[in-house]
Design a binder for these strands. Structure first.
Lengths: 131, 131
DNA sequence: CTAAATGCTGGAGTATGCTCTAGGTCAAGG
DNA sequence: CCTTGACCTAGAGCATACTCCAGCATTTAG
């Protein structure tokens, strides 16, 4: 699979794929006779996992850290698990913050509804000048 | 209240306060004889609200949009409510995504525990070379 | 065989959200 | 009076995560 095809399949731009390779998130793929990258289809699994990490806003640096451990094989499983557990902790805290913020926002919106209602009430008492 | 004091009270750096003023997130404060900014303590409420929006990753552009409406008075209450309701929608979606990602991460971590266990089991059968 | 499409590299550019610097001015204590 | 600390402006610089560009090589369809 060449880079254009992979790009279409995984939804990342060609530039992004090359960028990810440059920063060490993707292993350097084999090259064909003309020097073009040739990807093993198995890279899709990895890209899918990276997409998960990305969706949770894990910074690229941490993703790269993870990738480096992964490249070292099964013996780094414990370290990788720790890294993911730390990240999970952060996500759980984020979830808590998000809940709080959603509640605060709902309250604020309720207040706005009240303001709008008050204005309406006011208009009923004092009809507008142009009416 | 001068900028240094406000900075300490609200937790934003002096530079950030000036930056927020520049982009229109904070109204231009009065100045004293020497041209130094003098803030009304009421600004703390506004900064508190902005902190909420920031915590939910509302981009500064949107915050500025909100600030502009706010500066126009109560007649923009409905528009501001809409803006907040849109943002709330996004947060609810974010909450859903976060939940999914947390579950996926938990699964992944469980898999790692299994790998670690397998390695351990393996070591029991084939004691290490250096033992 | 050739033209269009695809790929290559290195490096510059972009957007966001600050953060820092240079080169001053202003205010308060010793 | 003079030093020190807080403040001022305009503009440069930084981290993150891409995104685009120039200029050239390779591949593929007709």
């Amino acid at each position: 699979m060449k880079i254009g095809e992979l790009s279409k399949k995984c939804g990342l731009s060609i530039d992004t794929l090359r960028f990810y390779e440059k920063i060490g998130l993707l292993e350097k793929p084999l090259r064909d006779g003309g020097g073009h990258r040739v990807y093993d289809p198995a890279i899709m699994q990895w890209l899918g996992f990276l997409a998960r990490l990305k969706e949770t806003d894990m910074p690229l640096k941490k993703q790269v850290e993870y990738a480096k451990l992964r490249a070292m094989g099964n013996k780094t499983a414990a370290l990788r698990r720790e890294l993911l557990e730390n990240h999970l902790q952060e996500l759980l805290e984020e979830q808590k913050r998000l809940k709080d913020n959603i509640n605060a926002l709902k309250t604020k919106i309720t207040i706005y509804r009240q303001i709008e209602k008050d204005i309406d009430d006011d208009n009923q008492h004092k009809p507008q000048p142009n009416s």
